[in-house]
Design a protein around this nucleic acid. Structure first.
Lengths: 159, 159
DNA sequence: CGTGAAACTTGAGGCTC
DNA sequence: GAGCCTCAAGTTTCACG
């Protein structure tokens, strides 16, 4: 799982253009197309690259609002229990356990503020969740592709 | 910029596999490859799909820690001023202005806790920033590709 | 890792509903 | 307007050196 300079440049290129052809990447990094493919295959097998995804403007798909919700749970609720409580809420696009007062920080995307309200109510009905604290996103200042490392449905525990 | 059911299914497919061939997508949604290509071209031109990116496991690239930092600014600091204060810190992978006490919420990726400390010090040296409140990510529970809608370097203001 | 050949995919034209 | 078919150019993928 050791990456050399060439691997890093290939990954950097694929972060900027996930549909770049192997020949195109090869030109940039000084390799032939098959050599690039072999490295990409290896990077995928090793789990460095976990997939490829379109980068979508959520507003265009009808997701007009987003928010970060701090979740507070009863006493010592385990990460797995928190995961169970939020996994079935499709509005959740990311979730983390964090240090500090909150048990978890949850990123949700919703159609509008009414939908956010519904989502909050539904979350608060979960047994483990005792309180929430919401910060509505007013504007997005920065968003890089490296912000989304995990695959869709399955949890990826960083620990 | 109106999307029909076919467009949505194509986007959904490309969110799961950004390198899927047009023929492959066509099989799934019941269209020929050229028809799919035309729609994808249109979706890109309209800004629904803003690009394609590899989905990478940051730990494998040496980014072993991450945190969410609430940023507090002097009085009425504008989003543009906040953006100027954080844009040159490469550890910032996402940033939002939010409702509530904090002026902005910043997602950073760092090599380790020492690197986080350095980043915090560097951020606090910015003129506009008066205080920070950090929540270190202990584990990632969920991460969907829809979490990253924007292109790398340029700011995307959702408002 | 590179080369070259086969299979497949892309992209642009024109044709049909 | 939107889709299908066709064909040339480009891309992926494989075996071999």
């Amino acid at each position: 799982m050791r990456l050399d300079e060439l691997d890093r440049r290939i990954v950097a290129h694929l972060l900027e253009d996930g549909r770049a052809s192997y020949a195109q990447i090869g030109d940039r990094v000084g390799l032939s197309a098959p050599a690039v493919k072999r490295r990409v295959d290896r990077l995928r097998a090793e789990g460095v690259i976990t997939g490829f995804a379109a980068v979508v403007e959520p507003a265009a798909l009808g997701w007009g609002a987003e928010a970060f919700i701090e979740i507070f749970c009863t006493g010592a609720t385990s990460p797995d229990e928190i995961y169970s409580s939020i996994r079935n809420h499709p509005e959740v696009v990311a979730a983390y356990t964090v240090s500090g007062d909150a048990s978890a920080l949850v990123h949700v995307r919703v159609r509008d503020i009414q939908h956010l309200e519904q989502t909050l109510e539904r979350l608060r009905r979960e047994d483990n969740i005792t309180a929430t604290k919401t910060a509505i996103v007013l504007s997005r200042l920065i968003g890089r592709p490296t912000d989304t490392p995990a695959r869709p449905t399955e949890p990826v525990r960083t620990s």
